[in-house]
Design a protein around this nucleic acid. Structure first.
Length: 262
DNA sequence: CTTTAAACCTGCTGGC
DNA sequence: TGCCAGCAGGTTTAAA
């Protein structure tokens, strides 16, 4: 159940566990990846990075593993026995540790050339967790001809606009910005535009830093990051106390305060 | 060009 | 208890 912040935190755990180490065991579930078990055995894990919700693992022989967790993929760290409730898809062992990817269906091995022309990676916009991305750049992107006419509710799910946003982030960003999902960047006031641009970066970064969506304690008890509307239909809005309403926007669950998100 | 709908994917929940 | 439909924090494709 991953959006950009969850994937980035998974990558952080993988880096600490296996980067710089030599592979002593390699296992893939998909038949088309089986040959890479021999290819990668004895190689080093060079680096692991995220691009939006995609995770890239570089090996010392220039092979790159692309993995996307979609809704259900999950990374586990440690030499534990396999979780029998989920399907093991990838397992990488080092002398002292191991990482396992469960349930993910989108796993491919790439050459550096294939990486450069990857259909998904080539198309996605700037990563909201990229520290060099500024609020001003986001504001300009919102106002660009390509995006300024799109409804915000669908735009914020489009990885071509900004990579790493997902359903809980779009819901929380639009509530924090007090905007209805039918609004368009071209029609926003300067004040609304400034707030939205800021929240598009601030909320994902706060979630990344505070384990937002993975930690129920944080989420519901006043820690740095918690949901204000996501999964909170029927509860009073914190700004105006009108009830939060659940609906569908772009065929995905949406939560908002119809009173203060106009 | 923009939006919507359906399909694909896997695991979990709730209702009968 | 068991099974199935529907749902979910995602993406792609086709169609409207």
């Amino acid at each position: 159940m991953p959006e950009g912040p969850e994937i980035r935190r998974a990558a952080d755990r993988l880096v600490a566990a296996v980067v710089g180490k030599t592979l002593t065991g390699v296992w893939f579930a998909f038949p088309e990846l089986k040959s890479y078990e021999a290819t990668l055995m004895g190689e080093k894990v060079e680096r692991i990075v995220t691009r939006g919700k995609a995770l890239l693992t570089w090996f010392s022989n220039d092979v790159v593993m692309y993995s996307h967790n979609q809704l259900y993929g999950v990374w586990r760290v440690g030499k534990q026995p396999p979780d029998t409730r989920r399907e093991l898809r990838v397992r990488l062992d080092t002398a002292d540790n191991a990482v396992s990817l469960y349930s993910a269906s989108d796993i491919t091995m790439l050459t550096p050339e294939q990486l450069a022309t990857h259909p998904f990676l080539q198309r996605i916009g700037p990563d909201v967790l990229d520290e060099s991305l500024t609020v001003d750049e986001v504001r300009e992107r919102l106002l660009s001809a390509r995006f300024c006419r799109r409804q915000l509710g669908t735009l914020l799910l489009d990885q071509g606009f900004l990579a790493g946003l997902g359903n809980y982030l779009r819901v929380e960003i639009l509530w924090a910005s007090a905007l209805a999902p039918t609004r368009r960047a071209a029609d926003l006031s300067e004040t609304e535009l400034a707030m939205l641009s800021r929240m598009l970066l601030e909320i994902p970064r706060l979630s990344y830093q505070t384990r937002g969506s993975e930690d129920d304690e944080n989420r519901h008890h006043g820690a740095l990051f918690r949901f204000h509307v996501f999964h909170l239909d029927g509860k009073p809005c914190e700004r105006c106390s009108h009830p939060i309403v659940k609906s569908l926007v772009a065929s995905r669950p949406f939560y908002a305060c119809p009173h203060c998100q106009q």
